[in-house]
Design a protein around this nucleic acid. Sequence first.
DNA 1: AGCAAGTTGTGAAATAATTAACAATTTTTC
DNA 2: GAAAAATTGTTAATTATTTCACAACTTGCT
Lengths: 206, 206
Amino acid sequence: MKHLPHKTIERLSQYRRALLICAAKGKTHIFSHEIAKIQHITPVQVRRDIMLIGYTGTLRKGYNIQELIDLIGDIIDTKEGLNVAVVGIGNLGRAMINYFNGKRTKLSIVAGFDSNPDKIDRIYSGVKGYHIDRLAEIIKEENISIAIITVPAGAAPEIADKLVNAGIKGILNYTPKPVQVPSHIYLEEYDMITSLEKVAFFVKTH
Amino acid sequence: MKHLPHKTIERLSQYRRALLICAAKGKTHIFSHEIAKIQHITPVQVRRDIMLIGYTGTLRKGYNIQELIDLIGDIIDTKEGLNVAVVGIGNLGRAMINYFNGKRTKLSIVAGFDSNPDKIDRIYSGVKGYHIDRLAEIIKEENISIAIITVPAGAAPEIADKLVNAGIKGILNYTPKPVQVPSHIYLEEYDMITSLEKVAFFVKTH
DNA sequence: AGCAAGTTGTGAAATAATTAACAATTTTTC
DNA sequence: GAAAAATTGTTAATTATTTCACAACTTGCT
Ligand SMILES: NC(=O)c1ccc[n+]([C@@H]2O[C@H](COP(=O)([O-])OP(=O)(O)OC[C@H]3O[C@@H](n4cnc5c(N)ncnc54)[C@H](O)[C@@H]3O)[C@@H](O)[C@H]2O)c1
Ligand SMILES: NC(=O)c1ccc[n+]([C@@H]2O[C@H](COP(=O)([O-])OP(=O)(O)OC[C@H]3O[C@@H](n4cnc5c(N)ncnc54)[C@H](O)[C@@H]3O)[C@@H](O)[C@H]2O)c1
């Protein structure tokens, strides 16, 4: 398979989530326009994404839901799964650990880190809290490749550095403060305020 | 001003956040490549965005930080500000209310809603919790135009319907369940798992 | 003053993402 | 069993976004 557009990767993840729900309801096939409706996009886009991953449906029957789920899994999951850490066991960090818990995917949150002694050596929804000083140690020990940063914004750059030194491969930064990492590390940043301001802008102009 | 690209709107919000920090440090001017470094983008892109909003910097001095902050405000803020509600006062909802509190922007969270009686008539970081049955009433009363959905995924579609009926203008859905709304309502959906899976994909393939 | 270095602003080119259009085929209907 | 309706797969066209390339100008330096 060639190169998949970033946007396609995002949508595949979303398709899979929707497909899992359909599968759970006992549905076996789905049409491109049904997926499109759920995701607020056009049927052509769905078909194109599916074409890009080399799957083909059946004319007038649609796509086999389970096959598509499995194929998307082959593309975006790793076989053995990846381990994830949450750095900053505050409101957001705990909310995320809790949210993840029970979702069976190939991604598992296996550790939390915090600098506050009160937060460590406790279990949060099945995930143990460690002191931030043990970051490198635990990352190696638990084979963690992705970290989610949920410390206060001011601490984010320092935490990013520590993660880089500890050999992390990907970072998801939920802090409003952008961090700098070497280019071989995949970095994704998200801040709610940007999303809210965007909604506000379109509310204003529409 | 013509039509601003969606991506530009997002970046303007981010620029402003970075600029506010710079201003707080006493900096008065900034170069395109400095902004670019912070945001992990190219200087040309910064200059182009700024060009699109009709601002011009000074050759070899860069952009006046305060002027740029104000201009971005003119574009993405409304004069009187907009009121926001959080629906679902759980872990994520409370984390968000708490996060917002104290950030002085033109967006204020003015109400929370929940179906659990234990959650209502309490104050969360300055925001009052109301019973979900009072949604329409309070939305009108408090002139709320944007809602953030943080209820359990299963309840999201029903909540979206209620919001639409109550006359909301924009919705930010943090639930993994996509909701359907009429096209005149601006809808933005975000799910952390998609972001994480995207990071995982790029970690895997790089 | 004259030159070098730095920086903005922008038209044009390139790249990325979406949409249109339609042939090919299957199923349903009568 | 012929016609109509539905649906996929894909090329081509379109639209959106980013990057290139460079002219224009400012500042600092000698
Ligand atoms: N709460 C939200 O909804 C929300 C939304 C978007 C972004 N954010 C951002 O996420 C971050 C966390 O938000 P929160 O509401 O969970 O804050 P919080 O204060 O509840 O949690 C922060 C946690 O990080 C820990 N911490 C502080 N310094 C640390 C360090 N150097 N190393 C390790 N741990 C450290 C603290 O002990 C605390 O447990 C903030 O940057 C916030 O801006 C929050
Ligand atoms: N926690 C996270 O980090 C995170 C991240 C991404 C998405 N999400 C999603 O956000 C949502 C909330 O997550 P959470 O961790 O806060 O869950 P939560 O269970 O802590 O909170 C949900 C809240 O919604 C209330 N509620 C339930 N039904 C309601 C209804 N019909 N009307 C009004 N209120 C109702 C509950 O009483 C509860 O207070 C979930 O859909 C979750 O998938 C959470």
